[in-house]
Amino acid sequence: MTAVPCAAQKRDEVLAILAAIIVIIVGVALSSLKDSIKRTIDYHRKPKKKKEPEPEDDATGAIVSGSEVSEKFMTYEWTLTRTTGVKTKISAGVTPQTCPHCGAHVDVNQTAECPFCGSVITTDTFDWAIDNITALSQKTK
C-alpha cells in the first residue's frame, strides 16, 4: 500500500527559506505605564528548491500557492511593549506562560484567551510582547 500525501503535506513541502536581513530600531517610547520599541525588519523569502510540483487544488489541479522561481522582499514594522519597570530575563527562547486565573499552561496567541477557563490574559507582568505588526511593503522578483 502506497501512502498518498494530503494537500497539507504538499503545501508544507513548498515552504520557503525566510531570513531577516535587516533590523533597524526606529523608535523607543518610555512612559509611566509602558515601554515600547518600534523596529522595521526586512525579510527575504527565497523559494525552496525542490523537485515536487507546486501545491494543487485537489478538485481542479490548479496551483494554489508557492513559486519555484519568485523571491519576495518584505518589510514589516514590529512594535514590542512591556510594562515599565519589568526587567528582561535571560532566556533561551520563548518563556512558557501560565494563566493567572486558573494556572494552566497557555500559548499566548492572537486572542490572548485561556483555552481552559476563557479568561483574557494580559501582559502586565510579562517581558516584551508583540503589540503590533504592520506590513510596510512587499516586492516580488
Rank of each mutant, 00 (worst) to 15 (best):
K89T: 09
S65G: 04
H44N: 02
T140H: 01
T88L: 12
R39T: 10
A16V: 04
A20Q: 09
S67F: 08
P5Q: 00
K50A: 03
D124T: 07
S137R: 02
K87E: 15
R82G: 05
V14I: 11
A135S: 12
D12A: 08
I133P: 05
E113L: 08
E71N: 00
D35R: 00
V4E: 00
S67C: 03
C117F: 14
G27N: 03
I63V: 06
A8Y: 12
D127N: 09
Q9S: 13
C114H: 06
C99Q: 02
C114G: 03
D131A: 02
I24K: 15
G61A: 07
K89D: 13
L15I: 14
A129R: 06
A62L: 13
A20S: 12
E54H: 05
D127W: 15
A8K: 02
M1N: 02
G103A: 01
D124Q: 01
R11A: 07
D12I: 14
S70H: 04
V14Y: 05
A62K: 06
A19Q: 01
L136Q: 07
V94P: 04
T123M: 10
D124G: 02
A104G: 03
C117Q: 03
P115Q: 06
S67Q: 04
H44R: 01
I22V: 11
G93I: 12
D42L: 07
Y43P: 13
T81S: 01
T83A: 00
G61P: 15
G85E: 10
K139A: 11
I21F: 10
Y76F: 08
A59W: 14
P5V: 05
A112K: 15
Q138P: 08
I17M: 07
T88V: 12
T81C: 04
D42K: 10
C6A: 07
V94H: 04
A129K: 04
S67R: 03
A104Y: 08
T81V: 14
G118C: 03
K48C: 05
L15K: 00
N132M: 15
K141Q: 05
A92I: 08
L18C: 05
T60W: 15
Y43T: 09
E77Y: 09
